[in-house]
Structures are given as structure tokens and as C-alpha cells.
């Protein structure tokens, strides 16, 4: 049964109306605000994630793209409970509310939902060898057979087992990133938030790691929340894609819909700027205007200060996040007229 729905996902691309596939994650009105200090010493608020709702189906790859600083990592981390969400946010993981769960359930959740970090050295303890780092999850969750499993993991991510005795500073950037991936996969999680998992890797190893992630997904029915700014990689790996701008999701669609029937002017600009090595010349939409700050977002549509298609209404009224067809959601006045 599971397998059937799995192939369904990939082939029919009608995810959002597929009812037989369970949701692994249901997020509604998720907000995350940080307190910041302004230059004059006054306290301010920065809404890194501002009222975001979506669901992720079991076994799918859901990608999150958008400019640097738009809130992708914050969203991923908040989902995993690494940052407490603001009040009123709701996150259901396998139908269980994880915004307020007991300690034992939290530990259980922590085992099932893992994170591959954007900056590998930020998550690898410099005083521990790779072996100690990889053994840690097994110790925390009191699981036996860790030794055998980590050799397998090292092999999977393409690192010779001799590296087990090294310290993080004795490894290259890409090697450390692969240790981070191995650690996230150590305990057979159900959901993995992959925060830029391949951006530190050269294309050949990038291809290996992506193939690996895809194989594991099939074998273990893994679900990925895949955060990346590389739109070619996202195109390759995703079932559905959400585009974020200044803390909000502005467009959400199945992969082909998003790339081929792009609706939002911001998404159009993003897609037009993909560098190309095949020599094909595409017309680039260059966005003008400064990137606004999430601590002081523009009125109306947040994108209006840079939007090539801006209209009067955009400056005052915030566009609703609306469904335009069964696979497609957009927040733009152009599309909801």
C-alpha cells in the first residue's frame, strides 16, 4: 500500500488532493519572532517566519527556496523544536502536537526528526573525533550496535573509515558536511530537514549525496524538507516546492507546476537568474531595489518594493495566499484578480 501511494506521488503529481497519503507534518500559522536591539539601543522585533501554513506528506520531498535571510533555516529549526515557535503556532507531527509535548515524547520526536545543518562546523564538536561524534546519538538513545552502523554510514556518505579517528579541523569542508549527513541519518529518522545539505560539496559528490538521499528515501520511506538556494538541485529532487520571501510563503506548487507554470513575479525572477553552464542564454529578470529588512517589512505585499509588475493595490493591501488550481497556491494580486 505504502509503495503504491509512493509511486503515485511521483507519477500523477496530484499531491495536494491525494487523501490516501498521510501527512507527516501539518503546520498552521507558524510564527517565529526574534528580539533584536536597534542601533539606538531600543528593543525591536524581527519576524523571521511570519504566519506560514503548509502540510508535508509522508515520503515526499518538500523544498523550501528563497533569498538569503528570508527565514528558511529558522522555519526548519522551529519545526524541529530547536527554536520555540510564537504562541498560536501549531505543528502536528504524525497528528501529534509537538509545540507542547512531554519530555519523553520530545526525545522520541527528536529521534524521528533530524536536521542536516547548513554550516557543518557549527554542529561538529571540535574536541571530539568523528567516531565519538557519530556514536553520540546511539549513546543518547541507548541503542546498541552503533559501531557497526557507523562504519556503514561512513561508507554510505563516501568517507573512508580511517576518518573515524580524525578531528573535524583535520577535514575539508565537504568531508565535514558528509559527517553531518551521516549523523542525521544514524537513527533511521522519519523526517529529515536538510538545510543546504549539498551546497558545500563539489558537483560530483553532490550528485552522489543526492542519489544517496533519494535511495534512502525509497528504502526507508523518508520524508525530506529540503532547504536549498540551488534551483537546479531543487528541480531535480523535489515533489513540491515552496518559495519564501521575507518570512512568508508566496508560492507553493508541485515541482513541474512551479517551474513550468510560474505565477509569482518573485519566483519568475528567481528562476530567470539560474546560472547556466550549457551555454543557453536566458533573459534575466534583475530585481532592483534593496532587499527590505524582516524587522521592518514593506506594507501591503512585501515584495512590492522590488516587483517588476507592481500595481497600486500592492502597496496597501496584502495579497491572500490563494489556490489557483489543485496543485498551486500563490500570494499575489496579479493572480487573484
Amino acid at each position: 500500500m505504502m509503495e503504491m501511494s509512493q509511486t503515485n506521488i511521483k507519477s500523477t503529481a496530484t499531491l495536494s488532493i491525494q487523501s490516501e497519503v498521510e501527512n507527516i507534518l501539518e503546520v498552521s500559522h507558524l510564527k517565529k519572532t526574534f528580539q533584536i536591539k536597534s542601533p539606538d539601543g531600543k528593543k525591536g522585533l524581527l519576524k523571521a517566519v511570519d504566519d506560514v501554513s503548509f502540510t508535508i506528506k509522508k515520503g515526499e520531498t518538500f523544498s523550501l527556496v528563497g533569498e538569503s535571510g528570508c527565514g528558511k533555516s529558522t522555519l526548519g529549526r522551529t519545526l524541529l523544536g530547536l527554536y520555540p515557535p510564537d504562541r498560536g503556532s501549531k505543528i502536528l507531527f504524525n497528528n501529534e502536537d509537538i509545540t507542547n509535548i512531554s519530555k519523553t515524547n520530545r526525545k522520541n520526536f527528536a529521534r524521528k526528526a533530524q536536521l542536516i545543518f547548513q554550516d557543518p562546523s557549527a554542529c561538529l564538536n571540535p574536541r571530539r573525533t568523528i567516531k565519538q561524534i557519530l556514536m553520540e546519538p546511539f549513546k543518547i538513545h541507548k541503542i546498541k550496535n552503533g559501531e557497526a552502523k557507523i562504519t556503514e554510514l561512513m561508507d554510505m556518505v563516501g568517507l573512508p573509515s580511517r576518518f573515524l579517528d580524525r578531528y573535524p579541523h583535520e577535514m575539508s569542508g565537504g568531508q565535514k558536511q558528509r559527517v553531518g549527513i551521516a549523523r542525521a541519518l544514524a537513527l533511521d529518522p522519519e523526517l529529515v530537514v536538510c538545510d543546504e545539505p549539498v551546497s558545500a560539496l563539489d558537483v560530483s559528490i553532490q550528485a552522489q549525496v543526492i542519489n544517496l538521499l533519494e535511495d534512502l528515501q525509497k528504502q526507508l520511506n523518508l520524508t525530506y524538507l529540503f532547504i536549498s538556494h540551488d534551483l537546479s538541485v531543487v528541480h531535480h529532487i523535489s515533489d513540491r516546492v515552496a518559495v519564501m520571501y521575507l518570512g512568508k510563503i508566496v508560492e507553493l506548487a508541485t515541482r513541474d507546476e512551479l517551474y513550468e507554470n510560474t505565477q509569482h513575479p518573485y519566483t519568475k525572477a528567481l528562476l530567470s537568474s539560474i546560472p547556466d553552464v550549457s551555454g543557453e542564454v536566458r533573459e534575466k529578470i534583475i530585481l532592483t531595489g534593496d532587499v527590505p529588512s524582516p524587522s521592518n517589512p514593506p506594507s501591503g505585499c512585501r515584495f512590492h518594493t522590488r516587483c517588476p509588475a507592481v500595481m497600486d493595490i500592492c502597496r496597501t493591501k496584502e495579497p491572500e495566499f490563494k489556490q489557483t488550481n489543485s496543485n498551486h497556491f500563490v500570494a499575489c494580486h496579479l493572480c487573484t484578480k
Binding site: 547548513q118 538556494h229 537568474s273
Partner: peptide, 10 residues
Amino acid sequence: TTALDVTIQA
């Protein structure tokens, strides 16, 4: 530019 999206990379 590894951590940067295409627009800022540009």
C-alpha cells in the same frame, strides 16, 4: 557564494 541564492550571488 555557496550559502547564497542566485540573486545575491549575482
